[in-house]
Amino acid sequence: MKTVKKTIVPDIISALFILLFVYTAITKLIEHESFIAVLSQSPLIGINATILSWVLPILEIFTAMLLFIPTMRKWGFASSLILMLIFTGYITYMISFARHLPCSCGGVISAMTWPEHLIFNIFFTALACIGLRLTFRNKLFIAIGRNSRTPV
């Protein structure tokens, strides 16, 4: 049961991240013009809005691809964790200094308030940590298993 959990949980977490990143990336690309407009209104991003408007969805799709390939999954989780930490930091800044601005996130997520979005991001950051930890544990388990195998 424990082994099943160890293999299924990272699969489910990576599927959730794929869903999140592909969905938000597609939405950002479909509504690209308004995405740039909202980004450019942020005091933190402002001048770099156009570059970021391309870099962010590309990074999200790239992370989703890493998560999709089982052998690359640990890098996918690492990338997800970094992205989520950056997004969470940005939201914390916005809540502290620019609460009146709209969110530049994609799709239904932009309908959330800043505090709701912060909770959502903290949840996904925790999921990325769990996924990363489980993926590394599984690798360690396989490595120990192989090393301890004695010739028959």
Binding site: S14, I18, V22, Y23, T27, I30, E33, F68, V108
Partner: peptide, 26 residues
């Protein structure tokens, strides 16, 4: 790859519905 494929398909479906929604002119 099953869960990953399902996730991608769901993401594409959700974003397709999202784009159908009428938005006020910016």
């Amino acid at each position: 790859y099953f869960l990953g494929i399902i996730a991608v398909l769901l993401a594409v479906c959700f974003s397709a519905f999202n784009s159908i929604k009428e938005k006020p002119k910016l």
